[in-house]
């Protein structure tokens, strides 16, 4: 595996170069100023509103996924010997 290291480095640098060129070569269409509510810089409230209104269905699906993951992980990790 040690022999893999230079190749991995080359590939990683190549990838970084490709992505970096993409990132710095693109004119990002962004707002000119960061939103400035300087009294209350937190946006937790906004996030909470979004999650429980617009994204409530994905949120619930995610909870089911997490539950399934929990059950699956426990089942796999527990193994058979503790039957």
């Amino acid at each position: 595996m040690q022999s893999n290291r230079p190749a991995a480095l080359v590939v990683a640098v190549l990838f970084l170069a490709v992505v970096g060129l993409g990132v710095f070569g693109t004119a990002w269409n962004t707002v000119s100023e960061l939103p400035g509510n300087l009294e209350d810089p937190s946006n937790i409230e906004g996030l909470g509103m979004l999650i429980f209104t617009q994204y409530v269905v994905p949120f619930e699906v995610l909870s089911i996924v997490l539950l399934a993951t929990l059950i699956g992980a426990i089942y796999m990790a527990k193994g058979e010997e503790s039957e």
């Binding site: 893999n4 290291r5 991995a8 480095l9 590939v11 990683a12 990838f15 970084l16 992505v19």
Partner: peptide, 13 residues
């Protein structure tokens, strides 16, 4: 991108 590449390098090695 840098973080990703570092992670990638780790995954590969």
């Amino acid at each position: 991108a840098l973080l990703f590449s570092i992670g990638l390098f780790g995954v590969m090695t």
